[in-house]
Amino acid sequence: MRLIHPFHPRCGEVFEFLERFNSWRGDVVLVLDDQGRRCSFPLEWTDMAPVDVFVAAAGEGCPFRTGDRLCPRLCRPYRQGQHRCVSAVSGC
């Protein structure tokens, strides 16, 4: 079993799988490290977790930038059917 959580200091290490069980926080895997000590990790942090269908469909990306969502432009009608775009947030 490989640990794949990107922010864990042991990310990328391979462990000997012992057991998978359900605890109060969710599915957990019990493993042995290279020194024979028992460790436990949330299932989502390992390569044993099932693929998240939403993440797979989204391709792990988003077509919008954060700034685009924080500063939307509202088009308000202007005189004689013309339109102009005005920022919803001042300074955008």
Rank of each mutant, 00 (worst) to 15 (best):
S40P: 01
Q80W: 13
E16A: 08
R20S: 06
C39D: 00
E60R: 10
R65F: 15
E16T: 08
A49Q: 12
P72C: 08
E16H: 07
R84I: 09
L3Y: 10
R2G: 01
E13C: 06
C71A: 15
L30F: 12
C11Y: 05
T66I: 15
H5M: 07
R69E: 06
F17L: 08
F21H: 12
G59L: 11
F54E: 10
S87F: 14
V14K: 09
E19H: 11
T46F: 06
V86D: 12
L43W: 08
P63I: 09
D34Y: 10
C92Q: 10
V29C: 04
D33C: 04
S87P: 10
T46Q: 04
A88N: 08
Y78I: 00
V14Y: 10
E19K: 07
F21A: 07
E13W: 05
S40A: 13
C62D: 13
V51N: 03
I4G: 03
R84T: 05
R25W: 15
P50I: 11
R20C: 07
Q35I: 11
F21E: 09
R25P: 00
H5Y: 12
G67D: 11
V14Q: 11
V55G: 01
G36K: 02
R20I: 04
R69A: 14
V31W: 02
C39G: 00
P42T: 01
G26T: 01
V29H: 04
G61R: 13
R79W: 14
R10D: 14
G91A: 08
M1R: 01
S87E: 13
G81V: 05
S40W: 13
W45H: 08
R73P: 08
Q82W: 12
V28R: 05
C62Y: 14
R76L: 15
Y78D: 11
R20G: 03
F64Y: 15
P6L: 02
A49S: 14
E16G: 03
G61I: 01
S40G: 03
